[in-house]
Computed example of a mutant assay.
Amino acid sequence: MKFRYGTFSYLPDLTDGEIAAQVKYALDNGWPVSVEYSDDPHPRNIYWEMWGLPMFDLAEPDGVLAQINECRAAYPGHYVRVLAYDAQLGRQSTALSFLVQRPAAEPGFVLERQDGPDRTQRYSVKSYATTGPAGARYAGE
């Protein structure tokens, strides 16, 4: 099963041409774009490592694609995503986020149940990948 994260997560993996089209859409809307990577895709891990600085004042997606390819080459076994920020009205919020790379093998998640007093039950999600050390959680690194 593939990890589902961000926009387009239920579609097949995007080609470089499709990625360029989405980056162009973001740039046409005036949204700065950044590239991030992580080896821990837990849904609550919203702070991934930044690859360079956010790219402002671009008109064409070529610069972003170059950064994506550099990040892919440096971290072939990590998740890589593209974020586009909407800074309208003085607020910064994510307008678009999608994966552009995923590891070849995705171990998935386990749902752990904890029984408490008065028959209460709590659940937590844990990635199978976190059993390995940070930076070496996926095969092929």
Rank of each mutant, 00 (worst) to 15 (best):
A136P: 03
Y5C: 03
T120I: 12
P76K: 04
T120Y: 12
L96H: 00
Y47K: 15
P133S: 12
Y47L: 14
G6D: 00
R137P: 03
T15R: 01
P61D: 06
P103I: 01
Y37P: 02
G30H: 06
Y25C: 00
L27C: 05
E49Q: 14
Q88G: 14
G30F: 07
G77W: 08
W48M: 00
S34F: 00
A21K: 11
R113I: 08
G6C: 05
D86E: 04
P32M: 08
I46N: 11
E106H: 01
A66Q: 15
G135D: 05
R91C: 10
R91N: 11
F109I: 03
W31L: 08
A134G: 09
G140P: 04
G116V: 04
A84M: 02
I19N: 02
R72H: 04
V35A: 09
R44I: 10
P117E: 06
G116W: 02
P61H: 02
P107N: 05
V64G: 02
Y123F: 13
R44T: 13
L111F: 07
F8L: 08
R119I: 14
V64W: 03
G132F: 12
Y138L: 05
Q92H: 12
Q22L: 11
A20L: 05
V33I: 09
T131K: 14
T7W: 13
R91F: 13
Q101Y: 06
Y123S: 09
E18D: 08
V35T: 00
A21S: 12
D62V: 07
A20M: 01
Y10A: 15
P41F: 01
R4A: 10
L14A: 09
A105Q: 14
T94W: 02
L11R: 12
A21R: 10
P41S: 07
Y25M: 10
E36W: 08
Y5P: 02
D86I: 07
Y25I: 00
Y128M: 14
S38T: 15
K24V: 06
Q92M: 13
Y123N: 11
Y138K: 06
V23G: 01
E18A: 10
A20G: 07
V33C: 02
V64N: 08
Y138S: 00
A84R: 00
P103L: 03
P133N: 10
H78I: 09
L53K: 15
T131Y: 12
G140L: 03
E36K: 04
P54K: 01
G90Q: 02
S127M: 11
C71F: 09
G140H: 00
D40A: 10
R72Q: 01
G132N: 15
Y37I: 09
A95P: 00
I46T: 15
A134D: 11
D115V: 10
E141D: 13
Y37T: 07
I19S: 05
Q67Y: 06
Y5A: 08
A26F: 05
M50I: 13
N69S: 13
M1H: 14
L11A: 15
D86S: 07
Q67H: 15
P103A: 04
V64R: 07
G140V: 06
E106F: 05
P117R: 12
A21F: 08
Y75R: 06
A66K: 15
